[in-house]
Amino acid sequence: MPLFQKAVFHTTVANLPDLPADAQREIAFAGRSNAGKSSAINSLANHNRLAYVSKTPGRTQHLNYFVLDPGKYFVDLPGYGYAKAPEDIRAQWEGLLAPYLRFRLPLVGLVLIMDSRHPMTDLDRQMIAWFSQTGKPIHVLLSKADKLNRLEQAQTLRDVQAELEKISDNASLQLFSSLSKLGVAEAETLLGDWLGMESKPYSLPPVGLRGEKVARPKNRKAMGWSARKSGGVGKPGQNKKPPAKG
Rank of each mutant, 00 (worst) to 15 (best):
V75P: 03
D115H: 09
S33G: 02
S168T: 08
T56W: 07
S54M: 10
A23H: 02
Q153R: 15
R104G: 00
W93F: 08
V233A: 14
D146Y: 04
P2M: 12
V233Y: 14
K55C: 00
K55R: 10
Q61F: 04
S143G: 08
L3R: 12
V75M: 05
L195G: 05
A35D: 11
E87Q: 12
G246P: 13
E152R: 06
S172R: 05
S172L: 08
T134R: 07
N34T: 04
A14E: 10
I41F: 02
S168G: 01
A154I: 06
A30E: 01
K229M: 12
K235A: 13
S39D: 07
L44V: 04
G95Y: 03
A162T: 05
E87P: 00
Q92I: 00
G246A: 15
L148P: 01
M197R: 11
M114C: 02
K200Q: 15
P70Y: 05
R228Q: 15
K240I: 13
A145W: 07
L3Y: 10
Q24R: 13
A40E: 09
F66W: 05
L96T: 00
Y73P: 00
M223V: 15
L96V: 01
Y52F: 14
L209P: 10
G79P: 06
I113G: 06
E212I: 15
P17N: 03
A187I: 06
R49P: 03
L44I: 05
G58M: 02
L173Y: 03
L157S: 02
G237H: 12
N15M: 09
E26F: 02
E26W: 06
A129K: 07
P236E: 14
A83V: 10
P217I: 04
P78H: 09
L195F: 06
A222F: 06
Q126R: 15
A85F: 07
T12A: 12
G246F: 15
F74W: 12
Q153P: 02
P86T: 08
N219A: 11
Y73R: 04
R210S: 11
L77T: 02
Y82M: 03
P20G: 01
N34H: 03
M197Y: 01
D193P: 00
P137D: 07
K136F: 04
A7F: 06
V108S: 11
A83Q: 10
F131W: 07
L173K: 01
L105E: 14
A129L: 09
E87D: 09
Q155C: 06
P206H: 11
M120V: 09
N46M: 10
P106D: 10
N64R: 08
G31F: 03
W130G: 01
A171M: 00
R220C: 07
S43E: 05
A28I: 07
K37A: 06
D69Y: 11
P236F: 10
G109E: 12
P57W: 10
F176G: 03
F9C: 09
P57R: 09
T121L: 12
L142Q: 03
P70T: 11
D69V: 09
S54C: 08
A185Q: 13
L97F: 08
R216T: 12
N149S: 09
M197E: 08
D115T: 11
K136T: 03
F131D: 09
Q238D: 15
I167D: 00
